[in-house]
Computed example of a mutant assay.
Amino acid sequence: MSTIAPTALIADDEAPMRDQLRVRLLQAWPELRIVAEASNGAEAVAMAGELQPDIVFLDIRMPGLGGIDAARQLYDRCHIVFVTAYDQYAIDAFEHGAIDYLLKPVTPDRLATTVSRLKRRLEKQPQDIGAQLAQLAQLTALGQRLLQPDPPDAKRPYLRWIQAQSGQSLRMVSTREVLFFQSDEKYTRVQTATAQHLIRKTLKELEEELDPDEFWRIHRSTLVRVDAILEVRRDMRGRQMLRLRDCAQELEVSRNHGALFQQM
């Protein structure tokens, strides 16, 4: 592998995530050349075969051929970096291995660490067969783990970041900033103290992914952050209404969810 003008390929099924990683990579490593971008694992394998990049950044979960299976076909040809939102897999599987990882959203500090590791590896001689077999074993173990269902008492990871499209860019919104989610025809409105965003994820999907101790469904069209609630009152029609911090809009509690505030 060449140590001059190293090359890389990015594979992620979400274009905004590819854009974000490309921009941050070029900021952290100006010499790096991004030679191609793929939207799934099969494209990544085909492009890597043709272009022979030094590094491939792979999203773990992509439609069709996922990142793990793609890595099994590429591990002996390039350096693999997984990009994942699933930190419970990343921490356990990669922390002490030869394969690096980045958690979404990718932060400049963590990316700088990955860049330093990659530069050191590119300076070394190609991996011997023992190191390659160790990588393959690590990939096989990770793939088997991802296929196994979580044990009944396992604590599932809750959604911590919302990916909201803003023009041609992607805005990463922490769930800690969100006051409420509300259905808005084909979209879901994400309301923070300073802005609102529209996402395509449904309330049902959000309810399954959010921590139920942090977000309550108060209406078929509304999920609210519990610690954002300042006051519950009844209006002239007897409806329960919520007043939230940093928000002028009041939210209605439907009769089906009124038991959340029984003392009213």
Rank of each mutant, 00 (worst) to 15 (best):
I218S: 04
I218P: 01
H219E: 04
H219S: 08
H219V: 02
R220W: 09
R220H: 14
R220V: 01
S221H: 05
S221Y: 04
T222K: 00
T222F: 02
T222V: 08
T222Q: 12
T222C: 10
L223A: 06
L223S: 05
L223H: 03
V224E: 03
V224I: 02
V224A: 01
V224H: 10
R225N: 14
R225A: 02
R225P: 04
V226C: 05
V226S: 11
V226R: 12
V226P: 02
V226A: 11
D227P: 02
D227E: 13
D227M: 05
A228L: 05
A228T: 06
A228S: 11
A228N: 04
I229W: 04
I229Q: 00
I229H: 08
L230C: 14
L230S: 14
L230V: 11
L230R: 14
L230M: 13
L230H: 13
L230G: 12
E231C: 11
E231M: 13
E231P: 01
E231Q: 15
V232N: 07
R233S: 14
R233F: 12
R233Q: 14
R233Y: 11
R233V: 13
R233P: 07
R234G: 14
R234M: 08
R234V: 01
R234T: 10
D235W: 10
D235H: 00
D235E: 12
D235G: 01
D235C: 04
M236L: 14
R237C: 04
R237M: 15
R237P: 11
R237W: 10
G238D: 01
G238H: 05
G238V: 10
G238A: 07
R239Q: 07
R239L: 09
R239N: 02
Q240M: 06
Q240H: 12
Q240C: 05
M241G: 00
M241I: 11
M241N: 05
M241A: 09
L242V: 06
L242S: 05
L242I: 06
R243M: 13
R243K: 14
R243S: 14
R243Y: 09
R243W: 06
L244Q: 05
L244Y: 05
R245G: 12
D246Q: 14
D246Y: 04
D246F: 10
C247T: 05
C247D: 02
A248F: 06
A248C: 03
A248Q: 15
Q249F: 06
Q249M: 12
E250Q: 15
E250R: 09
E250L: 11
E250G: 04
L251T: 08
L251V: 07
L251C: 08
L251Q: 00
L251W: 02
E252P: 01
E252Q: 08
E252N: 08
V253K: 04
V253F: 03
V253W: 03
S254C: 10
S254T: 11
S254P: 11
S254W: 09
R255Q: 07
R255W: 01
R255S: 00
R255I: 05
N256E: 13
N256P: 10
N256I: 00
H257E: 08
H257C: 02
H257Q: 12
H257K: 03
G258P: 03
G258S: 15
G258Q: 15
G258A: 15
G258K: 00
A259V: 14
A259S: 09
A259R: 13
L260T: 03
L260I: 04
L260C: 04
F261Q: 00
F261H: 03
F261W: 06
F261K: 08
Q262A: 15
Q262L: 08
